[in-house]
Structure formats: C-alpha cells, structure tokens
Write a protein that binds this DNA or RNA. Structure first.
Length: 877
RNA sequence: GCCCGGGUGGCGAAACCGGUAGACGCAAGGGACUUAAAAUCCCUCGGGGAAACCUGUGCGGGUUCGAGUCCCGCCCCGGGCACCA
C-alpha cells in the first residue's frame, strides 16, 4: 500500500495506538533472563486536565522507556493517580460535587488524554491512591510502624482560621489571613501522629553519597535539608521566684522552684559572649512568666498570629520581650536575662537559644533593637570588636578573646574545652542535632486515607485490627470549608472498640498525601497482590530511572527514601534506595498577569486572554486584557500553575497537530532538566519537520517502486553518508545522556542531508539506509509516524523490535581535515591538512597561510600549540 | 531570611574534557511558484564597518597560549522551605 500524500496525524496515531493496545505491546512480566528497566514518571494529581508539565514529564519518561526498550531491555513503564488531596475538596466547595466523583471523572478524562499521547505504558498496572485496595496498605503499614514505635503521637502546630473554625494548609494562608474568610490566622497546637524519620537521618544522609545517578544539586539540597550539625547542648540553671497565690509551674509542667533551661548551639566557642537567652513563645518558661505578666501574655498572643511556614517566620520582623526571669550562665555564674523572641522556633532543637550578639547576625540585630549588651569574644578577620553595622566576618570562626581561661583557643579547641567544663558541672555535653524534623502525617481533612485508630473511653486509642482493614472512607461527603465532614458523619464515626467491644469513636484525621506517594512505585510491581507487595517487586525494584519535577527534589524524594528503608527493615523489600537514577525535569513556565481586586487580593488572568505590547526589540512593555483593552499587571514568569492561572492547555495542541508534533516540540525546545518557557511558535516548526519527513518517505517509496534498488554509491554521496553517520553518532551519544533536544537536532540534520542526495538508483540505496536510521532514531520521540512509515516502507514489522542503528566508522573517515589557525588566541586562518599529518607538518601548514603570515610577520614565535583535529595557536611576541 | 539552580542573537537553544561562540530550529526580511492567498522551495540573518578588521556569552576582577566553560566579588531571575502536589 502506498503512503498517502497527506500527513494525517489523527489517523495514523489512532491506528498505531490500536496496534499497540491489541498486541499488548507494552504489557510486561518478570523475565529473569532479560535485563529489566523500570522507568517511572511521577504520577499525576488528577486535577481535571493534563497540563504542559505533565506532557513534558511523561514525554521525557516515554522517550527513555522506548529508547531503553529498543536497546533490548525488558521495560516497565506504569502509570497511576495521586488521587487524594486538597484540590478535590476545593472543587467540592465550589461545585457541590463529592471529591470522589470529581476525582474519578478527572481520572477518566486524563487517562484518555494520556493514551492519546501514545505513551508506552502498561495500563494493566494502573493504581489510584484513593481506592481502598491501595490505601489499606497505608493503614496496614501505619499500624506496623505504630508497633515499632516509628509512628508516635505528639502535638504539632497548625494554621487555625478562627472564623471557619478550621485548619488551613499553608497554601490557604495569604499574607497571614485565611483565604476564604480573610481572618487573621492563628497558630494552634493539636495532637498529631508523627513518623520518626529522624531515626533514619544518619542513613538518609550517608546514602546520598551512594546515589551517583542523582543530580548533585538534589543531593546537596537533601543534605542541607537533613542538616546534620555538631554542637553542644548547654544548660542554663534558673530559679523561679516563689509567687504568692497560685502554685508556680503548675499548668506549664515546670518544677515549682526552678530547673535547667537547655539550649543547643553550634558555636559553643562563643558561650563566654552570651548576653541573653531567648525562648519560643510556646516555651513552658514563657508561658509560666506570662501568668504574672499581662504584657508578656499579650505578646505571646501576638506571636501566635501569622502562619506556620518557615519562610513566613524567617522574614517577619524580629520582636521580643523580656520575661523578667534570669538564667545563670553555666560557666561564669552571671545572671542573663531571659527573653521571649518570635524568631525562636519551638519545633526546632530545644525551643530556646543562647544569644551571642557579637557573633550572630540575628542576635546582633535583636540586641541593637532592644539595647542588650554585645560582647566580642572571637578575634575574626574583621578584628576583635563588633561595631555596627553587622559584617559577615563577625560570624567567622577565630580565636577566643575576652574569654578567661579559653583565650587563645581556636574553634575546635574552644568547643572541646567548654564542652568538657560543662560536662563536669552536669550542664552540657557535645551533641549532634538535625535540621530534619519528624514527619507529621495527621491532616484534619476528609479526602485522604483514614488513620486506623479507634478512640475508646475505657481503653484509650486502640489500633484497628488488621482483619478490619481497610477502614473505608465514605465517598459521598461534600466538604464545605468548615472542618472535616467526617466529624459529622455518624455512620463512619460510631464503631465498637476492638478491645472491650464498647461504643467507640473513629479517628477522623486522615493521612498526609505524601504517604500515598511514598511507595506507589512498589505497588505498580504487584498491583493485584493481597499483600502490600509480593515477590514481583524483587524483580523490578529499584526504579532504574525516575523522572519528575525539580520541585519535588526534597520532600517527596526524601519521604520515599525513608519509606523504602522502613519497608526494608520490615522485610518487605531488599532495596535500600528506591530510585537508582533521577532526572529532575525543568518546569514549564509562562508569564503571569493579574489585577488587584478592591480587597487587595490578586486576580490572576490567563496569558491566553492577555495582549502584550512590546518595544521594537520585542521586549514586553505592558499588557492589556484582550476583552476590555485595559491594562493588567505583569507578574513575572513562573511555573505553570492553577493558583497563578498561567497554564496553557495542551489539548488544543494535540488535537490540531497530533501527539507526535507535541512530543517533538517538547523534546526539541529545551534539554529535559532546563525550564521551558511555553510559546506557540516552534510547534509549527516541529510539525513542518514531520511533514517533510512524511513527503520524503512517500517520494522515496515511489522512486523505489519505479527504479528498483541497488547500485554503487557515487563520489558525491560519500560526503552525505558521512554527514548522516556523524549525526547518528551524535544522536546515539545524546540519547545516552538523555539530551533529547540535540537528538531531534541530529534527526533534522539527517533529514536535511537526505534531501540533498541526487537522483539515480545508487542514491536510492543511500536514501534507504539514511531513512532507516532516521526512523529508528526518531521512533522514541515520534512513535506513531515512525511506526507507520517503518511498516509502509517495508523495513520490518515493528520499528520497536528493530535493532538500534550502528555507526559505520568507515563512513566517518576523512582524507583531509580543516584546522583553525589562531595567532595569540585569535582566529586568523584555516588550513587543510592530511588527516594523518604530524605536528611539524601541521605547524608548517599553519605558518604558510598568507593571512597568518600577516599577523606573525616580523615577530618572534614563542610557541605553537597544536590541538589535534581542532586548531593551531601560534603565540608571538 | 535560609538552601539549590539559572542568565549566550529578535526568540528556543548548541558548544560533552578550557580549543572556530551561535549547530539545529523559530521569528523577521528578500526572492521563486500562484490570478491571489495558504502551503512549499531558495537566499540573508549577533552588533559595528565599504572592507581589512573590531567587538560580543548578566556585571566587575583574576588564572591561562586560549575562558560561555575554571577562581573571587556582585546584580537579576526562578525553585524549595516541612499542610499545594
């Protein structure tokens, strides 16, 4: 059958997809005889429609999967849905649709979109985390961890909206106010379940050095996040004044007469310079002091205002207030004032810090603001005093001064000596601390995995027995923004105590959705197992290539690493690290536009509705809304997101040009790890490229039919054959390092070379070879078109099973090469020399060049540098 | 604020180990074909200059025969910051 004249992507794409589906091409099973390759892309949240970031992510993953398959591996590429989460609850509030129904609809629509892009996915392994047969293993695993003491309860801080009487996510707190009510948000302490990720901190840190397949950048970020620091725990004894009336301590749980306030410091060498000590607003000592100090109590209330995020706390104005209490310096016995400061975090370290204003920038500012003493105790490169303004050098390690017996000691010696003296007094010792905090997994939300705990008045908190799992989440609730609907859902709430059989209440908190995504890659290997995983996981795990957004560099990847190690310790897997190689895909970004409403809130406007005015150089000057012509504010270029309304819908692109064009454009526009700014231009170029390939194939088919094949290559064609094999060599290397933009570029070069081949039967032979190379190289990127042409041109049954093209080294051989000649580093000429010319011959040829002579003439040649195959640099004086 | 990246023509980018900066595309301009348009094909295309040549990889220094690439100091943009996923 002849290749049609018109390139009709819609038809050939659905044909190819039907072929793959009917042949079960991408359905895989364990085969110990073959080398496996587990290629995984981060599963999508079913938000409604695919966005450009998804298309990019899954195209990158698919190109890798198809490439690995063509090089002979048994490739597993699964797909699923990260289906629990906040957006479903928001949609419910807006539309009155239950999160479950909304989510399942979205999954159905997005699955269709994914299939239309032709991804080589084994759909028989599809997983959705909101289904009981998935999340029951979250619950089962939670219970195992509870038994092992890795899950435990303590209080945690949340954002509380006092109007809606509900807990808010950080995203729902805008400038310290609830996003729906506009009410000032407060911090509130509530009981939560935690996973003790800090028990694995040492291993999580150490194993980063054994992940050579991860980007250095991600390993560094995780290292800093885990944040191992060596320091000293220092005790500051205090006495509480005995108050008249109510009992001291009392509510705050303090001993009535006094105790020791512990702080952690990485700068014990500066202890002699400590001039005050500060505690967090929630610290028991602060609360105690506030009992008799209304002003302080008001300040502590004020500190509760605002969100809980670290960014917000770190950028807020530093404020403090004295408690009126003092603590005793453990070495000098001096009384130091005890302050409450809003920059001290209860959740980090001891919730208290010693302040050395002379050598810490934050303490320096605070001391200046409140007139606290500043005592320099380290000689730094900035000298032995610390006059304002702050200089970074003040924080350097140096030699102790003004520190009594410690004078003259360097950092390490001073820390050792001070730690030893503290230890003798029972007021300190060396300690390792971590920035990493335990993972709070309780969420006061409906659309998540129910925490399998039952509250019984008689027996306390009782774990749900395994044979009662899963605790099924009712799917018909519609959240309204005022708390968790499970708290009002009687049929879920009421149960019997597994221990005593009496009436009891179910826990209504659900699990953080990071729980769901911490092990889904295990479930893909054994999606129908009656256990969490089965032996099939041993064949497929670890994931050979993980592909996903750089924005997940810390949390998701760290939780998954932790989870895998815990699974290993429970005997569920043999692997210690889930992802051997990691490709952090750059974000798809787009300009943002907004207008400010009367209430000062930003209303984000989609770029598609905006007209941008540019200067004569094409730089944007201003923007207006297309519908009313009035100006909008340009908000900068950011990650495509719902919240900034700057997404571009890929659906129109796919419908108009087809999946292959979308895929080629995505791969060609930027290397995978770089961020990609979306623009409509360039898509046309990708489409033209595919159309040209199509026409070329059709003409080639006619030529063969007319004249037959065979014949010797002509002389003129050896140069073109070399071009083709050089491009092939480049493409093979670039496939190997996953730099797909230059793979596409190499394919375009091959196509350009093919187009320059002359007529005749000999030329047909070269065309056949070149086209065969091009179709195979392009097939991971444009699988539909290449599948169709490969069959039509009679190369074989399925391009996926064709051998990966090899470079013919003899085609690359050259008799002469051209070398650049520089004089003092500037290009002054080019010379052709025999490929096997030796150094003296090359030098002579370079010096003989007339233009080179002009620049060398009359000067002394100091030396000549020859870079074989590239250039000659003649250094003259 | 803290941690991690990035910055190269009008635009997306390439240059893999320090060796011809701008491959491959997009846009633009000119031309061919066409009654015309679209599509397609050909040519030009960092800036200055008639040319020789000079200049140019965010800015300022440095190392080197030679720097987009390495070092030091800045500026700007983006990602993450533990309840968005």
């Amino acid at each position: 059958m002849a290749i049609e004249e018109q390139f009709q992507p819609a038809r050939i794409e659905s044909e190819a997809q039907r072929h793959w589906e009917e042949s079960g091409t991408f359905r895989v099973s364990e085969d110990p005889a073959r080398e496996k390759f587990y290629c995984l892309s981060m599963f999508p949240y079913p938000s409604g429609r695919l966005h450009m970031g998804h298309v990019r992510n899954y195209t990158i993953g698919d190109v890798i999967a198809r490439y690995q398959r063509m090089t002979g591996k048994n490739v597993l590429q699964p797909m699923g849905w990260d289906a629990f989460g906040l957006p479903a609850e928001n949609a419910a509030m807006n539309n009155g649709v239950p999160p479950a129904a909304w989510t399942y609809d979205n999954i159905d629509y997005m699955r269709g979109q994914l299939k239309s892009l032709g991804f080589a996915v084994d759909w028989s392994r599809e997983v959705a985390t909101c289904k009981p047969d998935y999340y029951r293993w979250n619950q089962w695993f939670f219970l195992r961890l509870l038994e092992k003491g890795i899950v435990y309860q303590k209080t945690g801080t949340v954002n509380w909206d006092p109007v809606d009487q509900t807990v808010l996510a950080n995203e729902q707190v805008i400038d310290g106010r609830g996003w729906r009510t506009g009410a000032l948000v407060e911090k509130r302490e509530i009981p939560m379940y935690y996973m003790a990720i800090t028990k694995y901190a040492e291993e999580l840190l150490a194993d980063l050095d054994h992940l050579p397949g991860w980007p250095e950048q991600v390993r560094t970020m995780q290292k800093n996040w885990i944040g191992k620091s060596h320091g000293v725990r220092v005790g500051f004894p205090y006495r509480l004044p005995s108050p008249s009336g109510r009992g001291a301590g009392g509510e705050s749980g303090l001993a009535s007469d006094g105790g020791t306030l512990w702080v952690f410091t990485t700068r014990a060498d500066t202890l002699m310079g400590a001039t005050y000590v500060a505690v967090a607003a929630e610290h028991p000592l602060a609360l105690h002091a506030a009992q008799s100090n209304p002003e302080l109590a008001a300040f502590i209330e004020e500190c509760k205002r605002g969100g809980t995020s670290e960014a917000e706390i770190a950028t807020q104005e530093k404020k403090g207030m004295p408690t009126g209490l003092t603590v005793t310096h453990p070495l000098t016995g001096e009384a130091l004032p005890l302050w409450v400061a809003n920059y001290v975090l209860m959740g980090y370290g001891e919730g208290a810090v010693m302040a050395v204003p002379a050598h810490d920038e934050r303490d320096f500012e605070f001391a200046h603001k409140y007139g606290l003493p500043i005592n320099a105790v380290i000689k730094t490169s900035a000298g032995s005093e610390t006059p304002a303004p702050w200089q970074d050098a003040y924080a350097e390690h140096g030699t102790c001064i003004n520190s009594g017996k410690y004078d003259g000691l360097g950092f390490d010696a001073a820390v050792d000596a001070i730690a030893a003296d503290l230890s003798t007094k029972g007021l300190g010792e060396k300690q390792v601390t971590w920035r990493l905090r335990d993972w709070g997994i309780s969420r006061q939300r409906y659309w998540g995995t129910p925490i399998p705990i039952i509250h019984c008045d008689a027996c306390g908190d009782v774990p749900v027995p395994d044979d009662q799992l899963p605790v099924v989440l009712p799917e018909e609730c519609v959240p309204d923004g005022a708390g968790n609907p499970l708290n009002r859902y009687e049929a879920f709430l009421h149960t019997t105590c597994p221990k005593c059989g009496g009436a009891a209440r179910r826990e209504t908190d659900t699990m953080d959705t990071f729980v769901d995504s911490s092990w889904y890659f295990f479930r893909y290997t054994s999606p129908d197992a009656g256990t969490m995983v089965d032996a099939r996981a041993d064949y497929w795990m670890p994931v050979d290539q993980y592909v996903g957004g750089i924005e997940h560099a810390i949390l998701h990847l760290l939780y998954s690493r932790f989870w895998t190690k815990v699974m290993r310790d429970l005997g569920l897997t043999r692997v210690s690290e889930p992802f051997t190689n990691l490709l952090t895909q750059g974000m798809v970004v787009a300009p943002t536009f907004y207008r400010e409403g009367d209430d000062g809130r930003k209303q984000w406007i989609n770029p598609a509705e905006v007209t941008v005015q540019t200067d004569d150089k094409g730089r944007p000057l201003s923007a207006t809304l297309a519908t009313d012509g009035q100006p909008v504010v340009m908000g900068g270029i950011e990650k495509m997101s719902k919240s900034k309304n700057n997404g571009v819908d890929p659906q129109a692109l796919i419908e108009r040009y087809g999946a292959d064009t979308a895929r080629v454009f995505m791969m060609f526009a930027a290397p995978p790890e770089q961020s990609l700014e979306w623009s409509d231009s360039g898509v046309e170029g990708a489409y033209r490229f595919l159309k040209r390939l199509w026409s070329f194939a059709a003409e080639h088919q006619q030529a063969i039919a007319a004249a037959g094949e065979g014949g010797e290559l002509g002389k003129a064609d050896t140069a073109l054959r070399r071009e083709i094999h050089e491009a092939l060599k480049q493409a093979r290397a670039d496939f190997g390092r996953y730099q797909f933009n230059t793979v596409v570029s190499a394919c375009m070069k091959i196509q350009n070379a093919l187009g320059r081949i002359g007529g005749g039967t000999a030329a047909d032979g070269l065309r056949k070879e070149g086209l065969g190379i091009l179709l195979r190289l392009l097939s991971p990127i444009a699988p539909h078109l290449t599948h169709h042409l490969w069959c039509e041109l009679g190369y074989g049954d399925d391009v996926l099973d064709a051998p990966w093209p090899q470079v013919d080294e003899s085609a690359l051989a050259r008799d002469t090469i051209e070398m650049v000649v520089q004089v003092n580093g500037k290009v002054r000429g080019k010379v052709k020399v025999p490929a096997d010319a030796d150094k003296p011959a090359i030098e002579a040829a370079a010096l003989a060049d007339t233009n080179v002579q002009r620049f060398v003439g009359g000067q002394t040649v100091v030396k000549i540098i020859v870079v074989p195959g590239r250039l000659v640099n003649i250094v003259v004086k």
